[in-house]
Amino acid sequence: MGRMGRHVFVAGCVALWLLPLYLLVVNALTPVAEYEGKPGWTFQGFALVDNVRTAWDEAGIGDSFQASLLYAVVCGLVAVLVAAMAAFAVVVLPIPRPAFWFWLIYSGTLFPLQVFLAPLFGLYADANLYDTRLGLMLVYVAWAVPFAFFLIRNQMTTMPPELTEAALIDGASFIRVFWSVHVPLMRSGLGAAFLFQFTAVWNDLLLGLTLSRSGDVQPVMASLATLRATYASSGPPVILAGALVVSVPTLLLFLVFRGLFLRGMAASVR
């Protein structure tokens, strides 16, 4: 494939990504009264504020948005901290059979999420965790740890063992080595892992639909999915305006911290 062919291929891929975004924006701006029942390709007006207000207040996206922000930030931070400690134990601590513990933790990413839905639903119903923020936070942390562990462990294996040995000779404990040596040196990897987990929790639909139903507990993607049935008579503009709003946090996060993300990924794949 020559240079021209590569340019055409890249342009085609860009168009495939931008066209849905263009349709999303155009139809989210369309007033509900002027929507013709099918996606429009031209701007019919500017009713984004009204559509967002309807989705945010009347449809309850605002409560779900705040709940998802709590889940994504808190669960992402906790999962990264737990994953970093687990990676430190597997790579640095003199534990027996470290490969076994690596595969045991990493196996959490190998099974389809659907396998756990029925047992989780029964367990949460029996433990009174169904439709609670604590229940969702627990499952999000457990779900996010294995992949974060994989990323952080990969970066930690590239760190010279002499750093740990020197710190231990100077009298530092393993806890001090973790917090004073490894955590500062792994800031980019920890940041990249957090960005991944924030996005994964924010975009979750399946767990949110299965384990919650209240508007102030249900994550925003699950709330957005139920918006279609509730506001079908209003047409897609309200739904698309809600989708536009809920896509902003992850987009801003990657735009602001893209340098940190790239450095972290580069450190994790060495």
Rank of each mutant, 00 (worst) to 15 (best):
A225Y: 15
Y35R: 14
D63C: 06
A166H: 08
A99E: 13
W56H: 12
R153T: 02
W202T: 04
Y71T: 00
F150E: 04
G60R: 07
T226P: 11
V78Y: 00
S68H: 05
A83D: 05
C75A: 10
Q66N: 08
F100M: 11
P31L: 11
M156R: 02
V14Q: 00
P96D: 02
Q66R: 14
L136K: 03
G5M: 03
W56Y: 15
F147V: 06
V14S: 05
V8N: 04
H182W: 05
P96S: 03
L16N: 05
T164P: 07
Q197Y: 01
V49W: 07
I61D: 03
N51K: 05
R187W: 09
G264I: 11
L70F: 15
I239W: 14
L136W: 00
L21T: 02
I152D: 00
A15N: 08
S268R: 04
A11D: 04
F65N: 05
V8C: 10
D126C: 04
V78L: 09
A166K: 06
F102L: 12
T158L: 10
H182P: 00
L123C: 11
G242C: 03
F100L: 13
S64C: 02
R53H: 09
V73E: 06
L113Q: 14
M186G: 00
N203P: 06
Q197F: 01
M265R: 04
A266T: 12
I239Y: 13
L260R: 08
V248N: 02
F102T: 05
F150P: 05
E34Y: 15
A89G: 07
L24Y: 11
S212R: 08
Y106R: 12
V26M: 13
I169Y: 08
E165W: 06
F178E: 01
N128H: 14
A192Y: 05
L190P: 02
L104W: 07
F178Y: 10
F116S: 15
G259I: 01
R228H: 13
I105K: 03
F121Q: 14
A87K: 06
V181P: 03
G108L: 03
F254R: 09
A59P: 08
L227N: 11
D204T: 03
L205N: 11
V141N: 02
N27R: 09
R3G: 04
V74Q: 07
F100P: 08
E58A: 11
T54K: 14
I239H: 11
P160S: 10
Y124G: 01
P31E: 13
F196E: 01
V115S: 12
A99H: 13
E58H: 12
R153N: 12
S268K: 09
P96I: 01
L163A: 01
A87R: 02
T158M: 10
G60F: 08
L129S: 06
F178A: 05
A172D: 11
L207S: 12
L253V: 01
L244Y: 09
A15T: 12
L163C: 02
H182F: 12
Y231Q: 15
M186V: 01
F254H: 13
G135C: 01
G264W: 07
V32L: 15
F149Y: 09
A127D: 09
F261A: 13
V26Y: 12
I152R: 01
